[in-house]
């Protein structure tokens, strides 16, 4: 499988690997991301479907940047995760995949994770001088607007999670 190829050609690049419900995930070091991506590109993973991120606020390396790739020939899927801390930049994949352009802009907009060598890294979904990064866990759902959650019985706010902590 492709993971054996990566381990053969780039020893030490893969930090962790797990399979869950048929999905293969590898955790890669940010510094070696471009090498790993070039290796799997040669193995046939030529479509980058999606770049997204998860905010694990209590961990030291706060964000998990997640890449989903598809091999059109063998129909295999691969998920690559890179753990980054607050303010640390990742290399952009726009030179390899054109679909990375807007996906990385969205991650920058909603999480605040910068990407180096991106042709135009600016906000995508929010307006240019929007303060903050909405999908971070410390950003409130109503964005600081007190009218938003007024007069409703079951609040959507973080209290909704307390029943099953």
């Amino acid at each position: 499988m492709v993971i054996e190829q990566i381990e053969a050609q780039l020893p030490g690049a893969i930090l962790d690997r797990h399979d869950f419900r048929g999905d293969t995930t590898i955790v890669v070091d940010g510094a070696r991301l471009l090498e790993v991506v070039d290796c799997i590109f040669r193995e046939g993973f030529q479509m980058l479907l999606d770049v997204t991120a998860v905010d694990l606020e209590t961990r030291e390396l706060r964000f998990d940047v997640v890449y989903h790739l598809l091999n059109l020939v063998s129909q295999d899927r691969l998920r690559i995760k890179v753990q980054v801390g607050e303010g640390v930049a990742l290399p952009s994949l726009t030179s390899r995949f054109k679909s990375a352009n807007w996906s990385e802009r969205e991650v920058f907009d909603l999480f605040g994770i910068p990407f180096t060598d991106h042709p135009g890294l600016e906000r995508l979904l929010m307006w240019p001088d929007f303060p903050g990064h909405p999908l971070r866990k410390d950003y409130p759902l109503d964005g600081g607007d007190p009218f938003c959650n007024q007069d409703i019985g079951a609040s959507y706010a973080p209290l909704a999670r307390s029943l099953n902590a």
Partner: peptide
């Protein structure tokens, strides 16, 4: 893309829209 930490709500939900890369 669903990330679950065992709670009653997902920890993270992400939708990969088909027209997002097409429009880009």
């Amino acid at each position: 893309y669903l990330v679950s930490h065992g709670a009653k709500s997902p920890y993270r939900i992400h939708v990969r829209p088909p027209c997002f890369p097409i429009f880009s």
